[in-house]
Design a protein around this nucleic acid. Structure first.
Length: 242
DNA sequence: TTCATTTGACCCTC
DNA sequence: GAGGGTCAAATGAA
């Protein structure tokens, strides 16, 4: 049976970035774990703040690791290339795929796909039965780069949870900044309700080609392909955790 | 006890 | 019949 990254849940706790190491790293790991617990108990928008705290602590751990396992405080910060390399190694963060888009999902199936090296996981909105939310998504690890997850969304969320998730005003100003409007704006809002769109390339969505997004609240980059508004928010998003 | 995940079986489409 | 998507019983963790 092939292993597959499960979305976060009380039963799938993420491993600390560093199991062993200096007291500094131990403290950082504990702080990160506490921040994650705090995050799980908070509602939006406080949850987003907790997410930032977790992200900052993770970065601190990576900096500490830059000086070796002992976390040499006197060591100079790693170069951009080194940071990129280390981030690739700390792929444990990928396990957050299940909640990174701000919604709660419930896994209902997994299939081996013909020609793919990794199985495809099927998720539906947790509120499917209670609120009749039709949103589903499929998550599949890329064959080319295991660090890349292909996420395909089907259907828009109709549950109320989304309304608490993102401040409209913030989204509006950013959308005008990058030239988004109408459906395009909605897609970004649905894709990344907890993140703030910082820039995009090319500066506007079209219906062909690729769009790369940079989020101000995250050190992750995203690339979006194949969006089809005519069929109800059907598109693919590649989360680049590197 | 509750709830989420796992996983084999079933259903649908081509 | 093959492949993809979904169902639902079994399982496990909190």
């Amino acid at each position: 049976m092939p292993s597959y990254p499960s979305p976060p849940s009380p039963k799938n706790k993420r491993k600390p970035l560093m199991e062993h190491g200096s007291p500094l790293l131990a403290e950082l790991n504990q702080a990160m774990e506490l921040a994650r617990q705090l995050q799980s108990h908070l509602d939006h928008p406080c949850k987003a703040l907790a997410l930032e705290i977790v992200s900052s602590i993770e970065k601190s751990i990576l900096f500490a690791q830059s000086g070796g396992l002992g976390g040499d405080i006197g060591a100079s910060p790693p170069s951009a290339a080194e940071m990129m390399k280390r981030r690739k190694m700390s792929q444990v963060r990928v396990s957050s795929i299940g909640e990174e888009d701000g919604y709660s999902w419930r896994k209902y199936g997994q299939k081996d796909i013909l020609g793919a090296n990794h199985p495809r996981a099927y998720y539906r909105c947790t509120h499917r039965h209670t609120r009749g939310c039709p949103a589903t998504k499929q998550v599949q690890r890329s064959d080319d780069d295991p660090a890349v997850f292909e996420v395909t969304y089907h259907g828009a969320h109709t549950c109320l949870e989304r309304q608490q998730a993102s401040p409209q005003q913030q989204q509006q100003s950013l959308s005008s900044e990058v030239g988004l409007k109408g459906h395009e704006e909605s897609m970004v809002d649905i894709l990344f309700p907890e993140l703030t769109l910082q820039s995009m390339s090319p500066p506007r969505y079209g219906f062909d080609g690729e769009v790369s997004l940079q989020m101000a609240d995250s050190d992750m980059d995203f690339m979006v392909e194949e969006f089809d508004f005519e069929q109800g928010f059907q598109f693919s998003a590649f989360s680049l955790f590197s």
